[in-house]
Structures are given as C-alpha cells and as structure tokens.
Simulated scan of single mutants.
Amino acid sequence: MNKKVVLQDLGLKDYKETWDYQEQLFQDTLDIKIRNRREELALETPNYFLFVEHPHVYTLGKSGDIDNLLVSEKQLEEKGATFYKINRGGDITYHGPGQIVGYPILDLDNFFTDIHKYLRLLEEMVILTLADFGLKAERSKGETGVWLDVGTPFARKICAMGVRASRWVTMHGFALNVNADLGYFDMMIPCGIKGKTVTSLNVELGKKEIDLDEVKQKLQAHFKKLFAAELIIKKAKV
C-alpha cells in the first residue's frame, strides 16, 4: 500500500480549471486500478492532496436543489461569482477568497476501504486544527462538515464537505472558512440546511485576518497523523 501523498498548493485558482485538474488525477488513478485488475498487475497507485483558494463560485452537488441558490444568474455576475453543477455529493456550497479548500485525491485501497471513516477523519482533521486555535468544534448529527455550538440556537457551520468516490478513489473534499466574506453565504441556503448560519475562523477569533499558511500547516500535520501518511510537497503544475 502506498501511503505517500503528494501535496500541492495551487494558490488562487479558477474553479473549473481546478476541477479539470482533479478529474485528470482522479482518472489517471482509476486507469491504473483498472489495468491492474485486467492484467493482474500490482502497479502502485498515487495519492494527492490539493490546497486551493477559488474566486467567488457556487457549486451544486448531484443531489442538490437549485432552489437553494437564492439569486439569479445576473445577480451572480454582478457579484463577480460563477456557478457550476458538479459530480460530488451534498447540496450547494460557496467557495471564495479567504477560504481554504482541500481536495484529497486518494486511493483508499492504500489506507482503508470505508468512505464513512474517510469523511469522519477529514472532519477530525479540521476539528483538531480548530482546537489548535482554541475553538471547540464538533460534528452535527446527520449533517456533514464541522460546526460550532452544536445543539444550541447559535449552531454555525465553519467547514463544508462533499466528496465523490469511485473504486475507492476520492475527489472533491472540504472548504474551511478562515478569512471568508460571509456576505456571499446570504445568496444561498448553505448545504440546503435552513435556519443555520455560517461562520469563519477570523470572526470567531475576533481578528481581521488569520494567516492561511499557518492553518494549512496545521491541517496537513493532522492529516498526516490521522491517515498515517507520508506527505511529499511538490510545486503545483496546472
């Protein structure tokens, strides 16, 4: 089993370009697995973890409801935002500057074949990272992602999650609000969940801005430990 994970930070990158890059890595891994099965080979499959920030964009999962987007296409253009229907699970999600988006493209045959465990470990990675900043984050029963003040009238989501998997190969991932402009969340019903609010790390800490690189360092440290992975940092080529 290959537990090496190539880590790439793509910086600020267009959503569609990044999606295409994910699809390329995802398909290349699937092709190796298919060839291994057909030809009875044992070729090693790669693993990747992409960090990225996106310009303002809304994405709707395959089971999502378009009615959860509360504005018209023209209003999106006026806000400088784009919209895509995509092939992950979950409902509607916003990505934008000040948000750390993580896309692990892993062959879970290299780690464990349990998609629920995979999601819980991604959540745990974020929960542990937020604990490093003094916040008590947790899961909300029946809802993916990471929340604060669960079970109270003040419950708010700080990290959204939505993944796709085929033959135990994953893509898409999580979006952690660090210095996010929360006004953009008013243009949708986040993840299709009514009556819940969204927050950002800088708001919770009462700071104007949090160092994104510091948060990424903590995320990757917890990822490495939780997945017993070896991280290999490579300069992004997209």
Score class of each variant (00 low, 15 high):
1 M>T: 15
2 N>Q: 10
4 K>I: 11
4 K>T: 15
7 L>K: 04
8 Q>W: 00
10 L>V: 01
12 L>P: 03
14 D>S: 14
16 K>Y: 01
17 E>Y: 04
18 T>G: 12
19 W>H: 12
22 Q>M: 05
23 E>W: 05
24 Q>Y: 06
25 L>T: 04
26 F>M: 03
32 I>R: 01
35 R>D: 13
36 N>H: 04
36 N>L: 02
38 R>F: 07
40 E>S: 11
41 L>F: 01
42 A>P: 00
44 E>Q: 14
44 E>D: 13
44 E>T: 15
45 T>W: 00
45 T>E: 11
46 P>V: 01
47 N>F: 01
49 F>H: 06
54 H>T: 08
58 Y>K: 05
58 Y>A: 04
63 S>G: 06
65 D>A: 07
71 V>S: 03
71 V>H: 01
76 L>Y: 09
76 L>I: 06
76 L>Q: 10
77 E>K: 15
78 E>M: 03
80 G>Q: 05
83 F>Y: 11
84 Y>C: 02
86 I>C: 02
86 I>H: 01
87 N>F: 00
87 N>M: 01
89 G>T: 14
91 D>Y: 00
92 I>Q: 12
92 I>H: 13
94 Y>P: 04
95 H>K: 08
95 H>E: 10
97 P>G: 01
101 V>W: 03
101 V>Q: 08
102 G>H: 05
105 I>K: 08
107 D>K: 09
109 D>A: 07
109 D>H: 11
110 N>F: 01
111 F>V: 04
112 F>I: 03
117 K>M: 11
119 L>K: 11
121 L>C: 01
122 L>G: 09
123 E>W: 05
123 E>C: 03
124 E>C: 13
125 M>R: 08
125 M>E: 14
126 V>F: 09
126 V>G: 11
127 I>Y: 04
129 T>V: 04
132 D>Y: 02
133 F>N: 11
134 G>K: 12
134 G>N: 12
135 L>F: 08
136 K>H: 11
137 A>S: 13
138 E>P: 04
138 E>L: 00
139 R>T: 15
144 T>G: 15
147 W>T: 12
148 L>W: 04
151 G>C: 10
151 G>E: 12
155 A>F: 00
157 K>D: 06
160 A>R: 09
161 M>Q: 12
163 V>I: 15
167 R>V: 05
169 V>F: 04
169 V>I: 15
170 T>H: 08
173 G>N: 07
175 A>H: 02
175 A>G: 11
179 N>G: 01
180 A>L: 09
183 G>E: 09
185 F>Y: 14
185 F>V: 02
187 M>W: 05
188 M>S: 08
191 C>E: 13
191 C>G: 14
196 K>T: 02
198 V>P: 06
199 T>E: 05
200 S>Q: 04
203 V>M: 11
205 L>Y: 06
208 K>W: 00
210 I>W: 02
210 I>M: 10
210 I>A: 03
212 L>E: 08
212 L>I: 14
213 D>K: 13
214 E>Q: 13
215 V>T: 02
217 Q>D: 14
217 Q>Y: 00
220 Q>N: 02
222 H>Y: 12
224 K>S: 07
225 K>F: 00
225 K>M: 02
225 K>D: 14
225 K>L: 08
226 L>H: 10
227 F>C: 04
227 F>N: 05
230 E>C: 02
231 L>D: 08
233 I>Y: 15
235 K>R: 12
236 A>D: 12
238 V>T: 15
238 V>E: 09
